[in-house]
């Protein structure tokens, strides 16, 4: 009974973070800011849901796979976000107008950021 309460609490918290992540994807002004919400909030949401799975199933084989999935989520989600942001920058996606610094411009000086393929957002 007690474990069921914890399961439900973790599930709801996980869903909340995933919803926030998706909402952030819609609200954020540019690709880089969007990667912030997706990489953090959805990882947290996924991990909370997996913790709920683990609490519900206990130390059975399936429950332990949930732990394994948590580890892989932590390892892969930031790499994905990093690669999308890096690819976007190298293709010449513009930073949002409100951005106040761009130290990376020195590394790719040939990217003329004014006439680039800007994604319409």
């Amino acid at each position: 009974m007690n474990s069921e309460i914890f399961t439900v609490v973790f599930l709801i918290a996980g869903l909340f973070f995933i919803v926030v992540g998706c909402f952030g994807l819609y609200r954020m002004p540019d690709v880089f800011c969007r990667m912030h919400t997706t990489s953090k909030a959805t990882t947290m949401g996924l991990v909370l849901i997996l913790i709920a799975t683990f609490i519900h199933l206990g130390l059975a084989a399936v429950g332990l796979k949930a732990i394994l999935a948590i580890i892989f989520a932590f390892l892969t989600a930031p790499v994905g976000a990093h690669l999308i942001a890096r690819a976007a920058y190298q293709r010449g996606v513009k930073l949002h107008d409100r951005s106040i610094a761009d130290a990376l411009h020195a590394l790719y000086p040939e990217k003329n950021q004014t006439d680039s393929h800007r994604d319409k957002d």
Binding site: V20, C33, H36, T37, S99, A103
Partner: peptide
């Protein structure tokens, strides 16, 4: 840090007005 980061994301996303000064640092 992860929990702090997520609370901050929630605060930013759900605030009425986006108050941000994004940028890239070396």
């Amino acid at each position: 840090e992860l929990i702090k980061a997520n609370l901050e994301v929630v605060k930013i996303v759900l605030s009425r007005e986006l108050k941000m000064t994004p940028g890239i640092i070396a």
